[in-house]
Design a protein around this nucleic acid. Structure first.
Lengths: 186, 186
DNA sequence: TTGGATACTTACTTATTAGTAAGTATTTTT
DNA sequence: AAAAATACTTACTAATAAGTAAGTATCCAA
């Protein structure tokens, strides 16, 4: 596939994660890549196409990560840890996650982009619910809440704390993530 | 104070909570109020002025709620419950909260709006930290995490789950909030 | 070597945006 | 009754947005 196409997706994603979907323009992308506005439209006729492709890329990336962890035989702790490490990296790079960025703009998104975002979100929450359930069965995790609620709690915590971390000074993101993990022990 | 001015703030806030800051325009407001574009600029010369006023209004509203709860002698459980009820109401109205809406757009906001948003966020998180701390001392709440992290966890959970609720079908927001409260018991 | 696919650029259009200057009607104050 | 403040409207401007039609250069395959 085209290098330019991939760079547009990468840059578009970064723009969504920093400025938000409705604040970035094709001009932002074309200027950064040293190409013209119309060249971006050549690959992605509409902004909705680009948005949808970015979410689809995130879905693929997540599915690959899960496959990878399964083939490496990661246990529930290791899987949760790998997931949390994604957020620690995002925080280090001063970025939000794709759900936290696109979520608030949901109503303004194209139907296809909305559908992909729903798919991605359900994929993540269902996966989290599953590893919490099996991890609890194996005695790894201890919690009283319904597994789906617990998954939603952990996911929500990670998502919104990326925003908290940008806004509240001296917010210790790593310590926060450790607290989430500690909370699953006793 | 002017009725129109207050209606602009109210409508502006609703637009932020549903479409997001960068997706709403003065036209949206003027059309809805049956006035002209320039009339909105008469009260709020720039969009940044309006944004800042909306956040300031939220700060005042929150401070009034705290004062009110103190004068009514609310204990820590009742205070937390009142706070959570705000979110349950927002969810019922299919709205996000002001932090969850403006947070992702932080970098695109005017400096004054940013400062007010920081103020509001610290106000909420510090208040939550305080009632968690005193509630734990009194034996009301049980948790092992650092109080500040626990406050950030509860706040983040409430914020991002409003987004989850709009996106994941059959998400039971009330049950989710109950799980948060149950988690503070044993 | 020629036809077509690929990867763009040039040069637009149309719509929407935030914002403003100047004017007007109404109410309030002096 | 006159002056001034209030609450707008009219009529714009300048910038930026998404999007498009038509053209060009390069490369690859038949």
């Amino acid at each position: 596939m085209s290098v330019t196409r991939e760079r547009i997706i990468e840059l578009g994603e970064n723009l969504i994660l920093t400025k938000g979907y409705n604040a970035f323009s094709y001009q932002d992308i074309s200027t950064e890549l040293g190409i013209k506005n119309a060249a971006v439209h050549y690959y992605f006729p509409t902004k909705a196409n680009l948005g949808t492709s970015i979410v689809k890329t995130n879905i693929l990336r997540f599915e690959e990560m899960i496959d990878n962890m399964h083939s490496r035989g990661f246990d529930e702790w290791k899987q949760l840890d790998a997931f949390i490490k994604i957020y620690i990296k995002s925080n280090r790079e001063q970025k939000l996650c794709i759900f936290g960025s696109l979520g608030p703009d949901f109503d303004t998104l194209n139907e296809n982009t909305q559908n992909e975002l729903v798919k991605m979100t359900e994929l993540i929450v269902n996966w989290l619910t599953e590893i919490l359930t099996s991890g609890k069965e194996k005695g790894f995790f201890v919690f009283n809440e319904d597994a789906h609620n617990k998954a939603a709690m952990i996911f929500s915590s990670l998502v919104a704390s990326l925003q908290l971390s940008r806004i509240v000074k001296n917010f210790d993101y790593k310590s926060f993530c450790q607290a989430i993990q500690e909370g699953l022990k006793s």
